[in-house]
Each structure stands twice: as structure tokens, then as C-alpha cells.
Design a protein around this nucleic acid. Structure first.
Lengths: 220, 220
DNA sequence: TTTAATTTTTAGACAAGACTAAAACCTTAA
DNA sequence: TTAAGGTTTTAGTCTTGTCTAAAAATTAAA
């Protein structure tokens, strides 16, 4: 069953809203996420229900099915591979890739994605540090912790950010923090929670707790 | 004025039909090219006329405007750059690129195309040997001649094929002829017009006149 | 030059995806 | 447990791009 571009986008939104959530996703939530009106969402949910990628009970919201999850992850895989391409090969900045990847992810060609993956040397994470699902939709997520939760002298590697706004990404670029950077916690200031960290064994930088909370790392 | 994907495709078709033609392009011609019905074409011509990319007189066909030509060439530029990417970087074969490039050409991002051009090292010709327009729509075409029109002992370089069917492209690949190959005409058989040519100063091959007519070269 | 054949356009329908306004359904508080 | 408030769905409309059938315009032929 083929999904249209619009259907793929709705499904992806529903997948993201489902992650972590315990109950069904509401029509209003989807409308907010998709920036459309609830009436439009009702129409679309009926269609997605017919295609069996979601389970839809009127007035009670939706749950994504296994098939739907697989489809959503395939779209996410394409999105993230294109982001890697744009940053690694075409020198795009972190905050410039999302819109374009949003278009590129809908190109229909399994061969294209297979070859792109190979060309990029099978990356496991996108430029924001989010994991790239494999072709079967399997994601190997690493346990991640916010910098402010790490202890003094602990080492690790930055793998993601929670706030991916352009402003925040630019700030990180400027101070020399980036996805993949090896870090060590040098000091934690008790009264305001601010941190002193060592980046790549050479550069020291200070950051507020607010910033630290938004940077995720794997511990090593 | 923004063009939709469908409008871009129609405009590209009209541009191709206009090339070489002396008179206006007819509704029927466009319908055949686009594989749609004449009634659908009439509708679309009205829209394209409103957007001033074509000049449309009911019952008398269309002529593309300067603005329209520029738009069409921008789409063609994108299409051919993506083809180069697919062949050079992702190891696609000649006959596998068209469909995918047909989708990729509609991605809206001037930065993407600029960076892609740079990444590919500003290619001047696509994998079929067709010239890639520059960002202003200028095409630098080389005078090309079919192999059967070259004289014995003349040398040159294969730059394009007339017949880009998958079957023909595969045949060429098999015999070792390719875009960019340096060739020399060794012999021409009088009675059937078949040729003996030297490829890259090392490989000799024979081809019928029918094949030779479909291979274009620049002379050197 | 008048009729026949062909081409092109118009009219009306349909599907997808959006909207607004109104009706129907849940939930919660009095 | 009923009324109020919020959420969700339905009904009807719009736009884009397609179609078929019928009408209109052009071209060709007798």
C-alpha cells in the first residue's frame, strides 16, 4: 500500500507523538504538530486507518500499528540520511538541513537510499545525534544523559541536543561544542549548576545549567 | 511567481517541444509528451499563460516566453546535475537515473543546487552527454556530429547519444563505448555504412550504421 | 464553398488535501 | 445528573490536476 507525501508526514508526526506517550494520540495533538485544523486531521485519520498504519477509534484518538511504525521509521531513516549528506558532503550547517531533508525524504527509490547509505559509509547518527534506523526500522539507541547529570571527572561524547533551534545550534557551534566531541566534566558549580568542561582534551568551556540540560552525551 | 511540480513538468515538455520547432506547439503534442488528455492540457495552458511563462492563444497552440525558457532551463539544470550525482557518486547506471532525477529536480532549494554543483566540480555535461545550463540558463552547446558522418582517420570524443533507451545504453556499455570515450574512425564499409572504430587508443570495435547514427561526437 | 474530419475547448465530475461552520460527542463541575 | 466547556466529527466549499463527453473552432476535402 503506497502512502502519499501528506500521509507520510502525518504518520511521521503520529509516530513522534506516540514515542514516550502512554495513551492514544489525540486529534488536537496531531493538528498542532502538523499545523493544520482538527477537521483536516479527522479526514486524514480515517484514510490512515483504512490503510491500516494506525488504529483509529472515533473520538478516542489513534495508536500507530506495527506496520505504521515500520513505515514511519523508513521515512525517518531517509530524512536523517539526507541530513548527513547535506552536512558531510555539501557543507550545510546544522540549522539549514531540516527543511530540505523534509522534501528529500519523500523521494521514492529504495536503490537511491541504499546507495546513499553506502556512499555516506553507513552512518549510525544524523548531524543532530539522532540515531538512523536501519532498513528494517531497527534503531540502536544509546543510553544518553544530559551533561548536567554527569559527575565531575566523568568523560563521554556529545551525541545529541534536546533543543535543536537554530539559535541554540549556532551558539554551540560558536563555543566549539559539536556532535561527536569528546568531553570531560572538570567542575560543577554547586549553587547555580553551571559546568566547566573540557572539549577534545584541549579546549575548556563554561556553560550554564540551562545549556547543559540541553546537551546529551553517552558516558565512557 | 512560484510554479507547482505539475506546472514545471508541463513547462519543461513545452520547452523540449519548442526546441528546433519553427511553429507553435500544439495542445495535442503536449498531451502526447505528458501522457495526459488534451482537455487537461487546455486547462494547464491557461494557467501557464496566466503566469506568463508561455504565450497562449486558444486553438493556435503555445510559444514559450523568455521567462518560461529561463524557468525550464533551471529545471533542466537541476535534473542533469542530479543525474551526474547519481552516476558519479552513487554508481547508478545510465538507464537508471531518469526516473529518480525526475523527482529530485523539483526539490526547492537554490543553496542545495549551488552546493551540489560545487560538490560535483561544476560539470558541464550530464551522463548522456547533454549540456548542463548554468544558473542563468545559458547553455554552451558543442557542435556534435553522428559517428557515421565522420571521415576515416578522424578523431573525436563521444559526447552524447540520440537514442537513450535502456537497451541501447546497455549495448553501449557492453561494447565499451561510453560518454567521454576518445575515438578514431579506422574504417568505413562502403556498401552498408558500418564502421570500425578505435576506442581509447586500445580497443577496436565494429558497429552498424544504425548504431553509429545514434552516437554523437565532437571532432578534435 | 460547403461539408466532413480533426483538433481544441468547455462543462461537469472526481480525488486529495485543505478550510469554516455547525453538529455530535465526551468530560467535568456544580 | 445535568449543564457547560472542550474536543472531535460531519457537512459543505475550495483548489489543483486529472478525466469523459459534448460543443465549438479550425482545417481539409469534395
Amino acid at each position: 500500500m503506497v502512502l502519499t507525501t501528506a500521509e507520510e508526514n502525518y504518520l511521521k508526526a503520529i509516530y513522534h507523538l506516540s514515542e514516550g506517550a502512554t495513551k492514544s494520540v489525540s486529534t488536537n495533538d496531531v493538528a498542532a504538530e502538523m499545523k493544520t485544523k482538527p477537521a483536516s486531521v479527522s479526514d486524514m485519520l480515517r484514510k490512515l486507518g483504512d490503510k491500516e498504519v494506525i488504529e483509529y477509534r472515533k473520538y478516542y484518538g489513534v495508536n500507530i500499528t506495527e506496520e505504521g511504525k515500520k513505515r514511519a521509521l523508513q521515512t525517518i531513516r531517509k530524512h536523517r540520511l539526507w541530513e548527513v549528506f547535506l552536512v558531510d558532503k555539501l557543507q550545510f550547517a546544522w540549522d539549514e538541513v531540516h527543511e530540505v531533508a523534509e522534501e528529500l525524504e519523500h523521494i521514492q527509490s529504495p536503490l537511491l537510499i541504499q546507495r546513499l547509505d553506502e556512499f555516506l559509509n553507513y552512518p549510525k547518527f544524523d548531524p543532530h545525534g539522532d540515531p538512523i534506523p536501519d532498513e528494517f526500522g531497527d534503531v540502536r539507541a544509546r543510553p544518553r544523559v544530559a551533561l548536567n547529570e554527569m559527575e565531575i571527572n566523568q568523560t563521554g561524547q556529545i551525541v545529541a541536543v534536546k533543543d535543536s533551534s537554530a539559535a541554540f545550534l549556532r551558539y554551540l557551534d560558536k563555543v566549539g561544542a559539536y556532535i561527536g566531541a569528546r568531553i570531560k566534566i572538570l567542575d560543577k558549580v554547586e549553587f547555580d549548576g553551571s559546568l566547566e568542561i573540557l572539549v577534545d582534551q584541549k579546549k575548556t568551556l563554561f556553560m550554564s545549567k540551562d545549556v547543559a540540560m540541553n546537551i546529551l552525551a553517552i558516558q565512557s
